[in-house]
Computed example of a mutant assay.
Amino acid sequence: MTKYGFLGTGNMAKAMINGLLQQNILPKDILVSSPNSAARLSDELGVIALPAQELINQSDMVILAFLPNQLKNITSQLNFKNRVVTSVLAGVTLHELSQAINTTQIVRALPNVNVSLNQGVTALTKTELISSNQLVVERFWSLLGKQYEIAEDQFAVFSAVAGSAPAYVFKFIDALAKSGADKGLSFELATEIVTQTVIGSANTLANSDKTAQQLQDMVASPGGSTRAGLDDFNQQNFDDVVAHAIQATINHKHL
């Protein structure tokens, strides 16, 4: 069986590991290495904690999932032996990765947190991989959701509309739920109602041949209450507010 090795066990690593386990990847085929938390994660999930070099030796794919500023310190004494290496280190380019780990088999990935439920959206850019490594990479990300190969210079945009966007969706849900609670529902009930509505609406769009704008128009009858709400969104420049937040996200990632 394919073995996946995680150097680092932060939030994104845990999200990916949980997604793999939900897809029936055996805990013994998931290897982890971290000075402080690998043993604890092994006790919790049954994955295998190993020293970093031993993890590399036993893995078919190595996932770099520590803090970006730790790249040189962690990798300087390691031999990656031309293993395929996937990095989820924010802001670290393919060139920088190649300089640090001395291998040509590199994938730079930008997943969002929904990989934990196998509903992730991931951007990928990579060096030219040998065919066997290409298959390992495709298999790994297909287990966790959908992936899109995009140019590396578009990663900041992708990060804003996919990586950061779950937080913005949660904020929208929270705002809707608070409005429902202000009008008499309990906050817990309003949150449950809004959450299910968002799930259903997203699935409707995903399974439709219509655009989001067209579906808005189908729900909002002319002169009806939904149209009144959409008109108010427009008067409040809702689209501009979202665009402004996305630009702020992109600008911050370039600091």
Rank of each mutant, 00 (worst) to 15 (best):
K72C: 12
L67E: 09
L67Q: 09
R83A: 02
V85I: 00
E96K: 15
M61Y: 00
L89F: 08
M61E: 03
I63E: 05
T86S: 13
I101E: 00
V107F: 01
T75Q: 06
T122W: 00
Q70A: 13
R83Q: 07
G91W: 11
Q70L: 10
V62E: 02
S116E: 13
A90P: 10
A65Q: 03
V113N: 06
V62S: 03
F80L: 10
A90R: 10
A109P: 03
N73D: 12
L110W: 14
S98G: 11
T104Q: 12
L78M: 05
L117Y: 12
N57L: 02
N69G: 11
V62D: 00
T122N: 08
N102C: 00
V115W: 02
I106V: 08
N73T: 08
R108D: 13
L94T: 00
L110Q: 10
V84M: 14
V84C: 13
N57V: 11
L67C: 05
V107E: 07
P68D: 11
N57T: 12
R83C: 00
V113S: 12
T86N: 00
G120W: 11
N73Q: 08
R83W: 00
L94P: 04
S59E: 02
P111Y: 10
S76E: 14
G91R: 08
Q99G: 07
Q105T: 08
A65D: 04
V92F: 02
Q58H: 04
L71A: 09
S76I: 08
A109Q: 12
L67N: 10
L64R: 04
N69Q: 15
V113M: 14
A109I: 07
M61S: 03
T122E: 05
Q77D: 10
V113R: 06
V113A: 09
L117D: 11
Q105D: 05
V107C: 01
V121T: 15
N73E: 09
T93R: 13
N82C: 01
L78W: 06
N82K: 03
S116T: 14
L89N: 14
E96M: 09
